[in-house]
C-alpha cells in the first residue's frame, strides 16, 4: 500500500534544560522499523534509549526534540499535541517496564483497557469492556472476564505485564514500543512474555521497538539492533551480524560480558570497566574512549578529537568507531 517504512527516524535529538546545564540525552539517531519486524535498542542506563522512545511517542515532557520521526509518513516531531494524542495508543502504543507502577492502582484492569479503547473509538462503556475482556484473552490471561474486574495489584507480575501488553494492543496499533518489558520479571516469565510479543507480532504484523539493556532479549527477538552509548548510536546492524561480527569496541565489551553456555571452563566474564558517561559533561571525542579496551591498548588522538560518526562498514552494518577497520 505504501512505500514508507512504518517508523522512520532521522537525526532525532533530545535536550533537557536542567539547573546544572543542558543535557543532550540523544544526539541524533537514525533508524527505521518495518512492519512485522523488531528493532532492538540496547544500551546502559543513560544511553538515551528510553528518551528516544518517549520522544517518538511525544511523551518527552519538558524536553526539546529536533530531527524527524515519521510514523507511516506522518511527521511526529513538532506535531500539534492533539494530533499526537490521536496517534498515541491508536497507531503507536507503549509497553512500559514495571506494570505495577505503570498501571493505575485505583482502576480495574478492564476499566483501564476500556478507557483507551473508548478514547479512540468511542462507543459504550459496556462494549469497550467487552473489548477489554477479548484482548485480555488474546494475551493469554485465563478467565479474562473475571480478571478484567480486578485491580493491578491482584495480578501476578507476569499476568500484569500481559495486561500491560493487552492495554497496548487494545486499539490494534501498528507500532509497539516496549521499554524493558521483561526486566521486572522472573526469567521463565520473561520468556513467556517475549514469546507472546513475537506471536502477536506474527499475527498482526506489528512493528516492534524493543528497548532493553539485556542482549539475551535482543538475541531472542530482534531482527535489527541499534546499540546506543552516551546518547548516540555506537553500532547498527542486523542482529545476526551484530552477534557474529561486532565492530564497535563497546558492542564487543557488551558481548564479552554475557555469560555463554559454550564458554571454556574457567573462562571469566569480562565486564566493561568504568561507568556510563555524564550527559552534562560528556568526554571529548568518542564518548566511550575512557572505557575502551582498544584505546587503552593504543591511545589514538582521533578518539579524543571529534565524536566519531557512524560509518558503513559492511552492507547494512554501521559503526561509530575510528578503529572499525582494525576490528573487521
Amino acid at each position: 500500500m505504501t512505500s514508507h517504512p512504518l517508523l522512520d527516524v532521522h537525526d532525532l535529538a533530545v535536550e533537557f534544560t536542567t539547573e546544572e546545564g543542558t543535557v543532550r540525552a540523544v544526539k541524533g539517531v537514525d533508524f527505521t522499523v518495518e512492519r512485522g519486524r523488531t528493532l532492538g535498542i540496547v544500551g546502559e542506563s543513560g544511553s538515551g534509549k528510553s528518551v528516544t522512545s518517549l520522544a517518538v511517542m511525544g511523551l518527552h515532557r519538558g524536553a526539546t526534540v529536533t530531527g524527524s520521526a515519521k510514523l507511516d509518513g506522518t511527521e511526529l516531531v513538532g506535531a500539534p499535541d492533539d494530533d499526537l494524542r490521536k496517534l498515541r495508543g491508536r497507531r503507536m502504543a507503549m509497553v512500559f517496564q514495571d506494570a505495577l507502577t505503570a498501571l493505575h492502582p485505583y482502576f480495574t484492569v478492564g476499566d483501564q483497557i476500556a478507557e483507551a479503547y473508548r478514547a479512540h473509538f468511542g462507543g459504550t462503556r459496556r462494549a469497550a469492556l467487552a473489548r477489554a475482556v477479548d484482548v485480555l484473552g488474546d494475551v493469554g490471561i485465563p478467565e479474562p472476564a473475571r480478571r478484567a474486574d480486578e485491580h493491578p495489584h491482584q495480578f501476578s507480575g507476569g499476568m500484569r505485564q500481559r495486561a500491560m501488553i493487552a492495554l497496548a494492543l487494545s486499539c490494534e496499533p501498528d507500532l509497539v514500543i516496549a521499554d524493558e518489558p521483561t526486566t521486572a520479571l522472573d526469567v521463565t516469565v520473561q520468556a513467556q512474555v517475549l514469546e507472546l510479543l513475537m506471536r502477536l507480532q506474527q499475527e498482526r504484523g506489528l512493528g516492534i521497538v524493543m528497548i532493553t539493556h539485556d542482549l539475551g532479549v535482543i538475541a531472542r527477538v530482534a531482527d535489527d539492533v541499534l546499540v546506543m552509548y552516551g546518547g548516540s548510536a555506537a553500532e547498527q546492524a542486523p542482529a545476526d551480524t551484530l552477534f557474529t561480527t561486532p565492530r564497535h569496541p563497546y558492542t564487543r565489551g557488551l558481548l564479552d560480558s554475557l555469560p555463554r553456555l559454550d564458554a571454556e571452563d574457567g573462562a571469566e566474564l569480562r565486564s566493561i570497566p568504568g561507568s556510563p558517561p555524564s550527559l552534562l559533561a560528556p568526554p571529548a571525542g568518542c564518548a566511550f574512549h575512557p572505557r575502551c579496551a582498544v584505546y587503552a591498548a593504543k591511545p589514538d588522538a582521533r578518539c579524543t578529537g571529534e565524536r566519531p560518526l557512524l560509518r558503513t562498514v559492511a552492507d547494512g552494518h554501521r559503526s561509530a568507531c575510528v578503529h572499525d577497520e582494525v576490528t573487521a
Binding site: L59, R90, A93, A102, H120
Partner: peptide, 16 residues
C-alpha cells in the same frame, strides 16, 4: 508517576 505517563500514552485528553 508512571501510571500518569501510561494514561498519556493511551492517548487520553490531558484534562482526563
Amino acid at each position: 508517576e508512571p501510571y500518569v505517563r501510561t494514561a498519556r500514552a493511551k492517548g487520553l485528553r490531558e484534562r482526563r
